Computed example of a mutant assay.
Amino acid sequence: MRIPRIYHPAPLTVGTVLALGDDAAHHVSRVLRMTVDAPIALFDGSNHVFAARLTRVDKKGVEATVLATQMEDRESLLHLHLGQVMSRGEKMEFTIQKSIELGVNVITPLFSARCGVKLEGERLEKKLQQWHKIAIGACEQCGRNRLAEIRPAMTLEAWCAEQEAGLKLNLHPRAQQSINTLPLPAHGIRLLIGPEGGLSAEEIALTANYGFTDILLGPRVLRTETTALTAITALQVRFGDLG
């Protein structure tokens, strides 16, 4: 049986006994039906994995004792920051989950002129919390020991205006340049993926003003969630740790 991996939000130390959070405790006790003495693997975002054993499983909670630790670096050498204009329904959740499996380090949800998602206030905050849980689950599943960051949502222009070193890319169906012609990025990549209806002409001009390079993936028009994962995969193959 595969040893389950659990994220713990506080720093871990060998020899300590800790109580698992509500979601983790429910997963261990109710979903996996694990019992006392069962082994689990914990990670706290420090790029280490901690071997642990369950020492308490009951209605009041689940506790584990940390037994040993070692560094397990599964991070790509390519730092990827995805700016994703929010998509409807489960498409955004799918994009977040799979992008993290592919090695994206930071995801910023964006609002644009043709964004089909209208969220604000409490509804937006709940959605961000949901996406954070999806990020945790993706890291638990794929073996990453650093937690990918889900940033607060912001407007497209505010995100483009941020000062961040690195190559800035915008997917455009009429671009002249491809990923294979890009130079090796010295400080990572900032990748913009537009909405289902595409960026407006004004927004495309705005990205150019902020130093973004338009790139083309191929001759076919891809859905927004397909575009994100295809571009990330191609960038990881060319500059990162895939292939």
Rank of each mutant, 00 (worst) to 15 (best):
Q141V: 09
Q141L: 09
Q141F: 10
C142P: 11
G143E: 11
R144L: 12
L147H: 07
A148Y: 06
A148R: 09
E149M: 08
I150G: 11
I150V: 14
R151I: 03
R151Y: 04
R151P: 02
R151Q: 15
P152D: 13
P152A: 10
P152N: 00
P152T: 03
M154P: 02
M154D: 06
A158G: 02
C160H: 00
C160N: 03
Q163G: 01
Q163N: 12
E164D: 06
A165I: 05
A165F: 06
A165D: 15
G166R: 04
G166N: 01
G166F: 12
G166K: 13
G166E: 06
L167R: 01
L167M: 13
L169R: 07
N170E: 04
N170I: 14
N170V: 15
H172S: 10
H172A: 05
P173E: 05
R174Y: 05
R174W: 04
A175N: 00
A175V: 05
Q176E: 15
Q176T: 14
Q177K: 11
S178A: 12
S178R: 14
I179F: 06
I179H: 02
I179K: 08
N180A: 15
N180S: 13
N180E: 10
T181M: 11
L182T: 10
L184M: 08
L184H: 10
P185F: 00
A186C: 03
A186W: 04
H187P: 05
H187V: 02
H187E: 13
G188N: 12
I189Y: 04
I189D: 00
R190H: 07
R190N: 12
R190D: 04
R190Q: 12
L191A: 05
L191N: 01
L192F: 06
L192Q: 01
I193F: 00
I193N: 01
G194Y: 02
G194I: 10
E196D: 05
G197W: 08
G197T: 04
G197R: 09
G198P: 01
G198E: 06
L199R: 08
L199P: 03
L199T: 04
L199C: 05
A201T: 14
A201Y: 01
A201Q: 13
A201I: 03
E202K: 14
I204G: 13
I204T: 14
A205I: 03
L206T: 14
L206E: 10
T207M: 10
T207I: 10
N209C: 11
N209A: 15
G211D: 09
G211V: 01
G211F: 07
F212L: 13
T213M: 08
D214P: 14
D214M: 07
I215G: 12
I215K: 12
I215N: 13
L216E: 07
L216H: 13
L216C: 10
L216T: 11
L216G: 07
L217D: 03
P219D: 14
P219V: 12
V221D: 00
V221L: 03
L222T: 11
R223D: 05
T224M: 07
E225N: 02
E225M: 09
E225V: 13
T226D: 03
T227W: 03
T230S: 15
T230I: 01
I232T: 01
T233A: 15
T233E: 00
A234T: 11
R238T: 11
F239E: 09
G240Q: 12
